[in-house]
Write a protein that binds this DNA or RNA. Structure first.
Lengths: 339, 339
DNA sequence: CTGAAAGCGCTTACAG
DNA sequence: CTGAAAGCGCTTACAG
């Protein structure tokens, strides 16, 4: 029940001034070793902890960083959050989490809230809506208030803000190159997504890779539509009539769909068809057969973004925006094993 | 670039005292309407926001609550976090997130850290290790410091702390009852988990339900082991020889495994075999066929736990621990559709 | 080596 | 109706 003891109370017990106690605990060379010892012993005894609120007020910092993720149903962002946690702890910051639910409005409310001075900096992966409307004023406003901002993952825009992401074009290029190296010629791309920008980048990368490697770039190999039954039917045809040898799934649904359709046709994975998907580690490895996936290093992304933000917080003077692009890697599970 | 304006500066511009400005902004009836208007207009103009750190120091509260989740790869906890977010926002609190990684040691470090006074309260789902070793001293210590604690989800221990969870026994009882109502007699339980306590509760509930409903309680229907190949083989036998009509999967892996083995035997879901799994919504609905699942209301759990914590923070006097048990519900997807 | 004082940015009893 | 003062719990230049 002992309520927290304060500097003042310690000082009173020891019959010294508050300044002396404060300095002793902060190992100031001004204070005699004996006094330091006495003070520290008593502090230990009472389990004294400086009130962080008071310390922060004095230092005019908060010790917090905010992170806004667009959604949390996706384990990708959960993992990024884990990385943010790691690095923040190391650097002595607490992480305050917000979820924008893919809404610009919500995002603006959050930035408005934190502009009051709750945090020393912000990590954000902008919402779909924000990205679509290209409205980044709330972020610039924050920076005007001298609260540094670092973008992560969704960074396909040029708005002069620090950013950490992955090389989306490169990642699929690598996937195609790998499949090609396995002597696979007919590679299909399946995508059930819409707007998000990443889709486009990946499709471009796919086409480029096919061109460069001398593979067919026939449109029929690219199944991109939100109409799942249609995609399914077309994929079916590709498998049976065209004897497609590999499939790249750009998202959860299409990867799962691909695995499914292949098996319905009694085609073997990976012997007859190989699959690589843009899915998360957990998901990929839980499936049977497990699906080889593109590792986008979410944890590292969170760590790097946090490190970048902390650097900004500590050196607010630097002006040119930084940009870190992580290289993705293919993690091979059942669906790409060699025969 | 305008750095944050303070009360003092506003006062100076207006040629009034700091007190007057503060009172005006807080709509104190002491101040004349004219003055209030003048002050508010200037504040608006300069986009004044009170420094939350200073306000909190004055009020000796932090405005933060901490939440410790054991892991983040599980979307269940991600969803709970979403619920915590919702409710915390409503109540005017910020959420500081920590991840214990299922480690007691890590958990203790976190509670040690927040005992300094970073937060007004703590929400925690204890780590596996904590549960196994039954070491809850760090939580009691926190409460001695008058930082209220509320447990969520993993609450199968009686340690006199507020808690919000689900009725684990009841949930499986309901599942068995449903399957029984569909005229299914042979129901198998598959479990690939170990220690976690929940497993036991569910298995008990299963046995009880079978007894009550006059279904066989033969041990062969309960496949609980970490040895997945063994489980697979036994399940196979149950399906082919015993013609099991329904399967309940207690976790990700076993649910997926069940779905898989059934299909490998060219048995139809849901026509020949129905499946209910303890998996999350996203996962369940992404699969083909989609798997009916037990909804454990993670979002509501987060909301309720937060509401309970806030209540504790506001009324620290109340002593008897509260306990909220949410009723789970079966969400029917493909795998339990009627013929 | 120690302490009194000012101050971080606010709120609020109290006096006028 | 307004303002001076004290105080939340700390740190740190400054004086002694």
């Amino acid at each position: 029940m002992r309520s927290k003891i304060t500097l003042k109370e310690l000082a009173k017990i020891l019959n010294v001034s508050v300044s002396t106690v404060s300095k002793s605990l902060n190992d100031s060379p001004e204070i005699s070793p004996q006094t330091v010892k006495r003070v520290k012993e008593l502090a230990q005894l009472h389990n004294y902890r400086p009130n962080p609120i008071a310390v922060n007020l004095k230092r005019s910092r908060t010790g917090n960083i905010a992170v806004i993720v667009p959604n949390i149903s996706n384990t990708f962002f959960a993992k990024v959050l884990g990385g943010v946690e790691n690095e923040a702890r190391k650097q002595g910051f607490q992480v305050i989490t917000y979820i924008s639910n893919e809404s610009l409005d919500h995002e603006q409310q959050i930035t408005e809230l934190i502009s009051a001075g709750i945090v020393d900096g912000l990590l954000i992966s902008v919402s779909e809506e924000t990205q679509k409307l290209q409205d980044y004023e709330h972020l610039h406003l924050l920076m005007e208030y001298e609260i540094p901002v670092v973008l992560f993952d969704r960074i396909n825009m040029d708005i002069g803000i620090d950013a950490v992401g992955v090389n989306d074009r490169g990642s699929i290029y690598e996937a195609v190159t790998f499949l090609h190296s396995q002597n696979l010629k007919k590679i299909a791309l399946v995508c059930g997504l819409g707007e998000i920008g990443l889709g486009k980048q990946r499709i471009e990368g796919f086409t480029d890779a096919c061109k460069d490697l001398g593979l067919s770039t026939d449109d029929k190999y690219i199944l991109a539509s939100k109409d799942i039954p249609e995609v399914k039917q077309k994929l079916n045809k590709l498998l049976v009539e065209d004897r497609v040898e590999a499939i790249i799934g750009l998202d959860y649904l299409s990867t799962l769909l691909a695995s499914r359709v292949v098996q319905e046709n009694n085609i073997r994975i990976p012997e007859d068809v190989k699959i690589i998907g843009y899915v998360n580690e957990d998901f990929a490895s839980y499936l049977w057969p497990s699906i080889s996936y593109v590792d986008q290093h979410p944890v590292e992304m969170g760590e790097q973004a946090t490190a970048m933000l902390v650097k900004r917080i500590k050196e607010p003077s630097v002006k040119t925006p930084a940009r870190v692009i992580l290289n993705t890697e293919i993690r091979h599970l059942d669906s790409t094993r060699s025969k």
